[in-house]
Design a binder for these strands. Structure first.
Lengths: 206, 206, 206, 206
DNA sequence: GGATAAGCGAGACGGTACGTCTCGTCTTTTG
DNA sequence: CAAAAGACGAGACGTACCGTCTCGCTTATCC
């Protein structure tokens, strides 16, 4: 007997080639969602608005994404890669200064702001929280390489936990943006870098 | 046991005497709001629910607070003082370890979680953002005294900015709670304290 | 002399006296429902349409009536009394001929047609069926008086059941209207009357 | 090869022989439709439900029948012949008593109930009303033979219109089933038969 | 017996309607 | 006369269904 699935349809999901109606709708909706998110924020985002911007019927959105939350998450993830380029300047200090600078610039961006806000809101639902966790884990572990490289270069003791260090850098930035609303001015950024830089370098095996 | 905090820090609005019906309604609504906030979160909080819990009509709430946002802010501020006790153990390290420990404990509290969530959401509206700014300025400057005392004791150089330092401590905690959802375990807390402690101590006039 | 505006309530917003806003809304919606029912039939009746005709918001309709069925039933009952005038000509034959004539005329009316159609559709839901049952019981027992009067006059034996007799008269009419769609022409009506008239008169105590 | 309705009016489109996939689909869908109709009624019948029951895709149904109405009509006609056996007991009274008894039994059947309900609903659309008219004309003229035979036997005057007479018999039954929801108990049935029997027999040429 | 056309499975989509849930406003009634 | 009570306007949400469309594959018929 022949193996049953000799000519199985290659991929399981995206069977349509590229230009299918589905793909078109999906792209349009995602784009419209991000657009709406940027000029209006998460709170004033309605499916009806997205549908109109995308030139698509509301029901098509509900059919595919089920709920508004899913839509927003999908839209955001489709735009924001977790693989932001991590600076590699040759020294930890250079890396960190570049990193906070770039991070601050991104957070000042509407997209960056929306992303963080949405991430906070995702804490309400368990399954969304799960997605959120995966996203941040990846992003943080990515940024952690700055410290790993420093350790490789001998700039840092092996005892320094890259994970903690990267949160020590990023945490204050997010706190300002989300919680206190203060500006991410260079003095602040430099102060944070100084603290973490010295703080990690002071840690030794002993 | 309905005695509602007889010595609440003189509210600024209610000009009625303390025993009037108005005061009773106000207290009941505020209590109900916090209660509802705790079991359900901000997203699933409705004025109707609060009204029912408080045994009060919806219109009475709208008459007094105008909008849901105001109600929530008022309720939270009535419960959460900005004057949290800042540890004073005699050494910076002791202070910081006590501080992160207490902070983590409070954040694990439903009230603490709600407070931060609400604060994030307040970023949408300018006037709420203003209130938020005042709250955090006070709280942070309060906590900053730990570093000021250390400087006075000679543990720290005068060049260390207490404001930056306190955000370097608190930021990573809030980041975990709000953004990544990771646990505030002792290892993490110790790592943060170590980093900031060494980081600030390494800063000198030179 | 001013005809109408002598005493007060401004023509456009007649409140105070009998009609609060609620009453006004109720009346408008009921009227709009009947109107929509007449030009369009039951199947193509939408709450949105009714709301627009009534100048009222959809939610107000759902708030009060809960579901479309209830609305339709209420609207119909508010227009159609069960106390249709039963002919009293002095003889059974006169009564019956008048009765079928008037009944046929009413059935030819859009309202009459809609009423019967809706009544059939009400059979699906138990509670609606209950309302329906009460309506028809009353109407049939009302019409039954024609036969009771005839019995009193000695035209009919006491053994004749007025209930059965009235259904024998009305049944064929409804059957044509609802089921076969044939016209209720005079020949048919006369034939039915003849049959029932003779049929009942032939029944005796023996 | 369980041909359903051997005398269906020569299918217009699908001239496939008998065992093809098409025929299988058709039979399955029709059966599923009737089944769904019986447990749920016309109002709660959806194409999706029928498709699932039949193990067939929705599109296949729409392709063949175009619209739900057509499907229902086809399904019903495939099951219900218009050629119900008309009693022939030798006397008009015997015929009529058997007829009402059998009719009542059929109406008590889910299929019988559904059939009548659907027939009423068909009044909305002109073309469906046309089909309905043909069906009932045939059925009534069929039943009319009871009276024709009676006339032949001399039991009835030639002046009695069989068409009217049969509607006088059936009308009250349908009225109860469709409109008032009362039970078709023996007393009622006997009363109706008595009335029509005497009523028709009293009619003479004079 | 292989081309070929008719039909089917699968998956969206446009579109209409339904009924629910809030928010914040307005009117009516009541103490 | 002010607060309680109760609708109401407004608008979003999510669901159910109808009927349409496109694509790829499977049959059955026909040349």
């Amino acid at each position: 007997m022949d193996e049953v699935s000799a000519h199985r349809p290659a991929a399981k999901e995206p069977s349509r080639r590229t230009g299918g109606r589905s793909a078109r709708v999906r792209a349009a909706v995602l784009a419209a969602t991000v657009e709406a998110l940027l000029d209006g924020g998460l709170s004033s985002l309605s499916v009806a608005d997205v549908a109109e911007r995308a030139g698509v019927h509301q029901t098509s959105i509900y059919r595919r994404w089920g709920t508004k939350d899913n839509l927003v998450v999908d839209a955001l993830l489709s735009r924001v890669g977790t693989e932001a380029p991590i600076p590699d300047t040759g020294s930890l200090e250079g890396d960190l200064r570049a990193f906070v600078s770039e991070s601050a610039a991104f957070m000042a961006t509407p997209l960056g702001a929306a992303l963080a806000r949405v991430a906070v809101a995702m804490g309400d639902s368990p399954e969304l929280a799960e997605i959120r966790h995966e996203y941040w884990s990846r992003a943080l572990s990515n940024a952690g390489r700055m410290f790993e490289r420093a350790a490789t270069r001998g700039e840092l003791a092996r005892e320094v936990d890259p994970q903690v260090a990267v949160e020590a850098i990023a945490g204050p930035l997010y706190m300002r943006m989300l919680l206190t609303g203060q500006a991410l001015d260079p003095e602040f950024l430099n102060g944070v870098v100084d603290t973490v830089l010295h703080g990690t370098q002071a840690i030794t095996a002993g």
